[in-house]
Design a protein around this nucleic acid. Structure first.
Lengths: 332, 332
DNA sequence: ATGAAAGCGCTAACAA
DNA sequence: TTGTTAGCGCTTTCAT
């Protein structure tokens, strides 16, 4: 059962050479053709796999990427993860994944775990206010943020979608349809979108129509339902994420608000079900997978370049959840 | 920038003790109260984190769990991953995640990567025919399958949903509604469901109504559309996964088949959008998160117990996508 | 109760 | 071109 692992020493002995030679051959160093041949043969025969543990310890690095996501269950983050995985794999780097639940404490704990593992590169959708990232920086861990910026951590490069542009497009579209009372239903950690919303709406902004939920589904649903009930005069909503969009649809149905007749809805993030929904949802699509891929590229490239971050475009995809104001809701 | 990592030696010196003592204190060994106190203080002062690399190398293990999933983007697998992550975290184990894309070759490659990392426990939704798993077994890596069994690998414990029961329930429900021409739209690696379907349908089974798509969305859509076009006489479909269900809805719409008037649909896996769909989809819910959690428990417990696998119950959730036969499709 | 020392598997200096 | 050797940070006998 417990077959001892084949080590470099075994290979060296079997091939009748020194361990250094084996190491050299396997990492493409110089060696005579015949020696190389022999070592390679023996290695495959013995099914030898160099231990990353030994190598990393020696090289004082782990050669692993840490990936911290709020919720791996959310397709958006799933796509981000997919991008990271794809890039990491082409570089032969393992990825250690952790789910923070958008909780700074949990995040800090996970950071500690990654540090312990000796991970030397981290990609994260940051949850805290940025203080939690001091340890990684101090430990010299190359860090890149994805999808979100972190307040007070402008020193860490980030790969994000053009939230401001997306929000502006959405608001323009809605106001163009004649809407004036537009609500924003947001989630945690989206300062960009929030401020962009205020800015895009300008004088039309109504602070009461801005609601920010915590991460959970319940919280989101409560926020949506509360908003709709409290302000039946609103005619359009911008949901800042697929979870928010989902609960908005649910809450609207519960309150007998017809979309788009009574309520126009635009959702951030294009998910497969947006098309299946009735009506199909108009969305601001974000290149989730690219975000992950680019973040991985950045983190792998190391601190060399200075691209202080990447901004990826968003796209308005018009489907059926927005209508011109006019067939407005019955005057309660 | 490149602050050398604090090592056990640093702590030992600072505390005026030997490294062995530090090690003992930190791993709860015997030590005099005062020594313990001093070491602990110094350790926190220096923000010392024991290197998992060093420890694992010494103990000839990595203390990491490998998790291989077909597609991290699929919410089902996302939930499985979430369960694994939760359990692993409570055990303080890091999880290295890989996406196989349901491709045996890719899977084999990833297995190699995990082995190289020295991972000593693996959880996987197996893609290949089982031969690919010889290396892990040989290397003494504790392996547990999740969600799927692998042909020819009955020696590896698996945590799966009660597919047979779920299929039976779905078929019973459908036949109870008067349906006779029931199709099965499946994906890769679901032998259980397929055979259960044949068995449940008994004499009613029509091989032409059984279609198995490859993993991709395109393939799935093509399969669904092809099925519906080729056999307009079918009145009900069982989709073997959320992706299959999604494309079934899409294809039905494209072909102007009304659900449930023209076509009744039951989907495996309850996803959030099932409720948002119109009509809301009747589903066979699977405890995805539990599958992951239990698999992690099993793999962490080690090979000690003999529970040769776990079978988790499924649940029929009736919503609006199934109707009694009668308002059948117009006799083309 | 504590320290010295060996060694996990590997790579990189240094010799030969 | 090749082998010898010294660690990387840690745990674990074995003495003390």
């Amino acid at each position: 059962m417990n077959t001892r692992r084949t080590t470099i020493k075994d290979v060296a002995e079997a091939a009748g050479v020194g361990v250094a030679t084996v190491s050299r051959v396997l990492s493409g160093g110089s060696a005579s053709p015949q020696t190389r041949e022999r070592v390679l043969t023996v290695a495959t025969q013995l099914d030898y796999r160099p231990s990353a543990l030994g190598r990393n310890l020696r090289q004082r690095r782990s050669g692993g990427i840490g990936l911290l996501l709020p919720d791996i269950t959310d397709t958006f983050y799933g796509r981000v993860a997919d991008g990271v995985l794809a890039c990491a794999r082409s570089a032969g780097e393992p990825v250690i994944v952790g789910a923070t639940g958008d909780d700074p404490e949990s995040e800090a704990e996970l950071i500690g775990m990654l540090l312990e593992q000796g991970v030397d590169r981290v990609i994260a959708v940051p949850s805290g206010d940025g203080d939690g990232w001091a340890p990684t920086l101090r430990a010299g861990v190359i860090t890149v943020f994805a999808h979100r910026l972190s307040a007070g951590r402008e020193d860490i490069p980030a790969v994000v979608a053009d939230d401001r542009g997306g929000v502006r497009t959405a608001v323009d579209y809605l106001t163009g349809l004649g809407h004036r009372r537009i609500a924003y239903l947001g989630g945690p950690g989206q300062q960009q979108r929030l401020s962009a919303f205020r800015q895009a709406l300008g004088p039309l902004v109504d602070e009461e129509l801005i609601v920010v939920a915590r991460g959970s589904r319940d919280s989101a649903y409560a926020a949506a339902a509360g908003l709709f009930q409290h302000r039946p005069d609103l005619t359009a909503v911008l949901a800042g994420g697929n979870l928010l969009g989902e609960v908005a649809v649910l809450a609207a149905r519960e309150l007998d608000l017809r979309i788009p007749r009574d309520l126009s809805l635009i959702m951030f993030d294009d998910v497969p079900w947006a098309e299946l929904c009735s009506p199909p949802l108009t969305v601001i699509a974000q290149p989730a997978r690219d975000i992950g891929y680019r973040a991985a590229e950045l983190v792998l490239r190391g601190g060399t370049r200075r691209p202080r971050g990447v901004l990826l475009p968003t796209e308005l995809i018009v489907r059926g959840s927005c209508a011109a104001r006019g067939t407005s809701r019955s005057p309660r």
